[in-house]
């Protein structure tokens, strides 16, 4: 086991990790953050998308031992208590959620997109979410949710209530 110190959602966490453990396992099994979903474990589905030092990555492809001293933001950091953030709210309002398994990853990927590109085109949205698989919805409402979130955030900023 290796001891690491990592800042997760703003809080400094210290934990021991196995040598071959992924960041996804650490988040879910050791830090009690099951929002990042474990599905393919090979970077194909995007369900475990997190921001590592502000860069969108699949947590399953990050070696836990290598995040010592770094900063991770997960989907759990977005809502303020029961108040959803604009992206989460847009997903609910457009019905972009069916089984919900892919939703946390899509929400995190949407944040990464809208931070860089507040007014994405349809093609840019599809491209930005191309690493996130949804097997229920057919993506139509997901794309709509991103457009809706972009509009809300553009009009009111991130802290819109």
């Amino acid at each position: 086991m290796t001891r690491i110190t990592v800042t997760v959602n703003g809080a400094r966490e210290e934990t021991a990790v196995e040598a071959h453990e992924s960041l996804l396992t650490t988040l879910r099994e050791r830090l009690g953050l099951p929002g990042s979903k474990n599905a393919c474990e090979q970077g194909e589905c995007g369900s475990c998308s997190v921001l590592l030092d502000d860069v969108l990555v699949c947590a399953c492809l990050v070696l836990a031992a290598s995040v010592d001293g770094r900063e991770v933001r997960t989907v759990e950091s977005l809502a303020d208590g029961s108040a959803l953030d604009p992206v989460q709210r847009a997903f609910v309002e457009t019905g972009a959620v069916q089984c919900g398994f892919c939703t946390p990853g899509l929400v995190v990927a949407t944040h990464a997109l809208l931070r860089e590109n507040p007014e994405p085109s349809l093609a840019e949205i599809r491209e930005a979410l191309s690493g996130n698989l949804c097997r229920c919805t057919g993506y139509g409402q997901i794309v709509e949710a991103v457009q809706r979130a972009a509009k809300t955030m553009y009009l009111h900023g991130l802290d819109d209530e």
Partner: peptide
Amino acid sequence: IGSPQIRNA
């Protein structure tokens, strides 16, 4: 290559 997540890594 891949997706934004893969290209970032």
